[in-house]
Structure formats: structure tokens, C-alpha cells
């Protein structure tokens, strides 16, 4: 089924773009390192592959004249999401290029900004590549060559967007998004329940969480019992 395939590819592209965004955020900061640059490169290549595959499928499907109206509407929706995603990816790649050349890693004095982010981001990159862990094998000064390659790829993505605009004509204003207003709350809650995603600042409001409160009372009860026992033992002996 072409539609399911496109949807799966688009989801993967969305995930990779989001991870790439997260990786670019820390370029030039205190967590910047050779490993981060390498992760950036791998994520970007993966995103590019996914984008090419998705673009080819979607263009093929939309150029098919014999498509039913419903199918077509579905594909147009996917197409709009895809082109928006490409825009995001292109913007992030351009920023990565600008930041990468502004903060060279191998300069004599490494002028990195102390932003307070310290941890490595290999888990983010691993999520983007859907791999368990990541091996870093690049040699010492690969980032100079990588910048040129990045520049080329930015141009390629730009050309791809242009090309798709010319090949397929989807009037964006006619497309109805499937998500209604406030939809992010409903499914955000369910996603949070299923995959524990979607909550990150909630930890601050932790004490109100009923399960945590239960755990705390249990723990303190056990502690009290232990103290009482210890006192008894001390008195008896």
C-alpha cells in the first residue's frame, strides 16, 4: 500500500528532522565536540536519504491521474506536511553550516560558548538513526571537509524543494489538516501514557503525581518501621 508506506517514511523523516534540530541546537555551545559533528553528519545523511525516498514516492503518487479523489486528498495532505518538513530541514541545515563555520573545532583556542548544556547527545542521534548505539570513527579533522559537503547538500535540498514545486501542483490553501485545534493535547496525553514521550518539564510538578506520592508514603512507612525495630532492639539489648 503506497499510502501507508509514504506515511511511515514521512514519520521517519519527521523524527530525523526533530533529532537533527536538537543536535544543531548545541553546536557552538559547551557540549560541542567532534562526536557531535559526526552525529550531525550521520543524522543529516539519513534525513537526506529519507527525503529523497519520500519525495519520489509522493511525486509518483500525485502525478498519477487515475487516483481517486479521497486518495488524492490524503496524498496532498502528506505532500504539504512533507514540503513543510523539508523547509524545516533546510533551515536547520543552513544554520548548521553557519554555526559550524563560525565555531571551528580545531582552531588554536576553541571559542565555545558556555551555555550550560554538558551532556553528550548521542542518544538523540541514535534515536534519529534508530540504532541502539553509535560508533564514532571519524578522524581528527573531518569537519572541514564535512562543511563543504554540507553546503552541497543544502543546495541539493533547496533544488529538491524547487523541483517538487514545479512537478506537482498542490494548492496549499485547499488542504485541510487532519489535526483539529487542541488535538496535540489529547494525543499528547495518550502518547505520554504509551511511550512516555511528551513530558519533560512535568518533573517540576512531580509531587502532585499520585504514583510518586504512593511510593513516598510506602518508603516512609518502611523507614518508620525500621526505626521502631531498631529502637526496640536497642532497648531490649
Amino acid at each position: 500500500m503506497a499510502r501507508e508506506e509514504c506515511k511511515a517514511l514521512l514519520d521517519a523523516l519527521n523524527r530525523t528532522t526533530a533529532c537533527y534540530h536538537h543536535l544543531v541546537l548545541t553546536v557552538g555551545g559547551s557540549a560541542d565536540s567532534q562526536n557531535l559533528r559526526e552525529e550531525l553528519q550521520k543524522t543529516r545523511q539519513k534525513a537526506h536519504e529519507l527525503a529523497v525516498a519520500t519525495g519520489a514516492r509522493l511525486t509518483g503518487a500525485l502525478r498519477d491521474k487515475s487516483l481517486a479523489a479521497e486518495e488524492r486528498a490524503e496524498f496532498e495532505r502528506l505532500w504539504v506536511a512533507f514540503s513543510g518538513c523539508l523547509d524545516l530541514l533546510e533551515a536547520d541545515m543552513q544554520r548548521a553550516l553557519a554555526l559550524g563555520s563560525a565555531f571551528p573545532l580545531n582552531a588554536p583556542r576553541r571559542p565555545l560558548v558556555r551555555t550550560g548544556v554538558a551532556g553528550a547527545a548521542s542518544a538523540v542521534a541514535a534515536r534519529a538513526l534508530s540504532a541502539r548505539s553509535l560508533r564514532h570513527e571519524a578522524e581528527h579533522d573531518f569537519d572541514v571537509a564535512d562543511l563543504q559537503e554540507l553546503e552541497r547538500e543544502v543546495l541539493q535540498v533547496g533544488e529538491m524543494i524547487q523541483d517538487m514545486e514545479m512537478k506537482v501542483n498542490v494548492p496549499r490553501w485547499t488542504v485541510q489538516a487532519r489535526q483539529a485545534a487542541g488535538a496535540e493535547l489529547l494525543s499528547g496525553a495518550s502518547a505520554g501514557a504509551s511511550s512516555a514521550g511528551g513530558m519533560s518539564v512535568e518533573e517540576r510538578s512531580g509531587p502532585c503525581d499520585p504514583s510518586k506520592a504512593l511510593a513516598a508514603t510506602l518508603f516512609s512507612a518502611v523507614l518508620l518501621a525500621a526505626v521502631a525495630l531498631a529502637v526496640c532492639v536497642a532497648k531490649l539489648s
Binding site: A18, H21, V80, G197
Partner: peptide, 17 residues
């Protein structure tokens, strides 16, 4: 409104990342 699917998906994915 046409890109709202993308907005919601990206927001969720970025939070997961």
C-alpha cells in the same frame, strides 16, 4: 491550518528527542 499536521507531529517528535 494546512500545515497543522506537521506542527503537531514535529512538536511531539521534538519532545521525544
Amino acid at each position: 491550518s494546512h500545515a497543522w499536521d506537521l506542527v503537531v507531529t514535529q512538536a511531539r517528535e521534538q519532545l521525544r528527542a
